[in-house]
Amino acid sequence: MKTVKILSPAMLIITLLLLGCATEPVESELEPEPADLPTAVDEPAVEPSANGDFEVTEELYEQTFEEVERVISRLNEIISVGDYEAWLEYLTPEYIEAITAPENLAELNASPLLQRNNIIVEDLQDYFEYVVVPSRANLRLDDLEFIDDNTVQAIMIVRDRRAILYLLRRLNGDWRISV
């Protein structure tokens, strides 16, 4: 069984913002349209342990990995073609609020990459165009870390280091980008 430690929301926001700004543009290829996402398992397969971590069954891990892999494939396609409206459908209200908070926009605009390219991010659409599209169009899922039974961190191994691609939360049976 896999166990993970719970991260604070503030650390997740900072990590996601830094990852979004830290990577250089990547050439992307369109991937096939994913099938409909399967529904969650009927029985709870994530149990809190005595130390606050969650123990995840192999079955839940594999099912969730497949679901999240399809979501990331779809996000890669959406981002590759720059479809802002389709991308919005994958965001939680908390994510939108966090990204568009004035202090977070100011932090983004202070990043060397944006300053070097004379880019100012004023709203969510600018964030999509100038941060998400250049850095997230060709991602792959290598691992998952469960925060709780409806929240996972999607992980990609980059230069032998674990990078959080997305924090995803299941809402009404669908995985959405969250903070």
Rank of each mutant, 00 (worst) to 15 (best):
R116Q: 14
A35Q: 07
Y166G: 04
G82L: 14
N118H: 14
V56E: 05
I177G: 05
N150M: 08
R169F: 01
S80G: 15
N51T: 15
L171G: 01
E66I: 05
D149E: 12
E122R: 12
D126V: 08
E85R: 05
I79G: 02
E62P: 06
Q115N: 07
Y90V: 15
Y84W: 05
L37G: 09
G173S: 01
L167W: 00
N104W: 00
I120P: 02
E69N: 09
D148H: 11
L114V: 09
R169M: 06
Q63E: 10
Y90D: 07
A110S: 12
E67M: 10
R159V: 08
P48I: 05
E129C: 10
A137R: 11
V179D: 03
A50G: 00
R169V: 11
T64A: 06
E66F: 09
R162T: 07
D143C: 06
D174Y: 15
L168M: 11
E67T: 07
D148P: 09
L75Y: 11
L114N: 07
V158A: 14
N109V: 06
N104K: 01
R170P: 03
E94M: 02
T64K: 02
A98Q: 01
N172F: 00
T100D: 04
V158N: 15
N138I: 01
A110G: 13
T92N: 05
R176C: 03
N51I: 15
N104T: 07
G82V: 13
V152F: 03
E107R: 03
L91G: 03
G173H: 08
A137L: 01
R176S: 06
F146N: 02
D36E: 13
I155L: 10
S111T: 14
L167N: 09
N172G: 09
E59T: 15
R136H: 15
V41D: 04
D142F: 05
N76K: 07
E85W: 00
P38T: 06
D160W: 08
L167P: 02
L91A: 07
L167K: 09
R162Y: 03
N104E: 04
V81A: 08
T39R: 14
Y95G: 03
E97D: 13
L141H: 09
I79Q: 06
V131Q: 01
W87S: 11
F54S: 09
P38K: 12
T39G: 14
A98N: 06
I96S: 10
V133T: 07
